[in-house]
Amino acid sequence: MRRTTRVLTAVALAAAALLGSATGATADDEAPTEAGTAFRTAVAIEQGEKATADASTGDYLYWQFPAGAGQRATVKATVNLPEASARHGAATWQLDVFDGLRRRQACTSGDRTVRASGQDTTVALSCTLRTVRPWSERWANDPLPGAYYIRLTVVDVPDRDLGLPVKAEVEATAEDAGGARAEGGALGAPLHAAAVAEPEDGWNGSWWSGRWGWTVGGAVLCALAAVGGYTLTRHPRRR
């Protein structure tokens, strides 16, 4: 019995791994080389796509990417700073992520605020979001399927360094959170998703999850245990 469950779980895990690796979609078209300057003009990127942008220190750079239910998204950004000789001191860069309704999203891990010393040539920032849920109560600001906005900017810099050219690079990836985070419910429509492409598994995630294995395994176990119990007590013919 145990073996059956193990096999089932293994099959489920393998499937999850396959699906998980498939979410890092490969982009055929070229990655964007511009960034938006406001929520309204945020440039749409795909998951797994490296977008770049030339900008000035002090610009607010916006992108948006899609994430579906059951995905745990990670945003990574790298900023190539102006040459050290032109700068006048340390600068603090920050990565903010907002959902499709422009609600700030918490970073569960990663360095979203990084202070670069006067000598650093690059700054690397990252932010891992909570797992996207297919539905939440209206009072909650849980991450929901739809677009996510990325905002990259310098939050603290010597005034004299404003306006110097920088080069930014961002990438949003997502991993499947697995059956433990598989949930029910659905939204009527993903949040503000007009500009972004639907993730491979759809906005509500794949119908498949390890929970099928557990539930079917449990049913089989139940039936076998029932047959076992019956045979234990009955034995009428042996008398």
């Binding site: 449990g218 176990l221 139940c222 076998l224 245990a225 029932a226 119990g229 045979t231 234990l232 007590t233």
Partner: peptide, 13 residues
């Protein structure tokens, strides 16, 4: 599920 199945089996038997 296992214990429930077992109990039902025992009872039925």
């Amino acid at each position: 599920l296992g214990v429930t199945g077992l109990l039902v089996g025992l009872l039925w038997g």
